[in-house]
Nucleic acid binder design. Structure first.
Lengths: 124, 124
DNA sequence: CATTATACCTTGTATAACAAGGTATAATGT
DNA sequence: ACATTATACCTTGTTATACAAGGTATAATG
């Protein structure tokens, strides 16, 4: 029963829910990448080590919502690859979600920095 | 078709998934609060405006996992209230999840701060 | 011609936030 | 007295999404 690591990673999975959209939009900001290339980029960070089963449906959603474009292209000798890029709508969305993210970071850090017992009111 | 606000708030909902456990543990750090009191505290922050239908099942999970204790207590004339407090396990969990959170903030900020086109390798 | 590597896609499962309801009791209004 | 409101906790059904585990197709290699 290797359960302790499972319990740990369950938090990670839930943390990814909700940040992954932001993460993929940010990764595509100023870049045009195909699926596995994007996946490799995200594997450089502990927080964003996702699998293909997560990435492709996510990209489908982003495309469906008009936030990214998808385009098959053949680069030289390689097999065709589907390249994703931000639309202007996606770029705006990235800005909006990024602001939300900064707000969340601020709020949560405030909570972390103010343990009780105390009113946790408007001090300073 | 009041859809634009709905689309905005969908991101918020998903962002809460995965941060709420951390948030509630942090809120209970050094405090002993009953349900609605905890709810009011969380309503002071934009990111953590949740409802009772979210809070009570969440507290049940935390209790089931041994991270918090729940205790009915009657304070003077008021009706009995269920007071929640961190266990030592919960305190340790808060530390662990807090570290994970800092890692996530660091990773995501790195992604946000490094738009392409660029390898996004080990620069500096 | 079997195997491996690359690249994309699909299905089923589990989790968690939420809206919308519910119960019970104390305080207040008329 | 009795209806209403406020407080406090709880439950059910819906929805979204990350993931494991599978699948398809093609090109290069043994």
């Amino acid at each position: 029963m290797a359960n302790e690591k499972d319990l740990e990673s369950k938090w990670d999975v839930q943390l990814r829910k909700g940040t992954l959209d932001l993460v993929v939009l940010a990764a595509l900001n100023g870049r045009t990448l195909y699926g596995l290339e994007l996946l490799q980029l995200l594997h450089k960070f502990e927080t964003t080590r996702i699998t293909e089963g997560t990435l492709y449906p996510l990209l489908d959603r982003l495309k469906r919502d008009g936030l990214v474009t998808a385009q098959w292209r053949q680069e030289g000798e390689t097999r065709p690859r589907k390249y994703y890029a931000l639309t202007e709508l996606g770029s705006n969305k990235l800005s909006a979600v990024s602001r939300r993210w900064q707000q969340a970071v601020s709020d949560i850090n405030h909570l972390l920095a103010h343990p009780g017992p105390a009113p946790l009111n408007d001090e300073e």
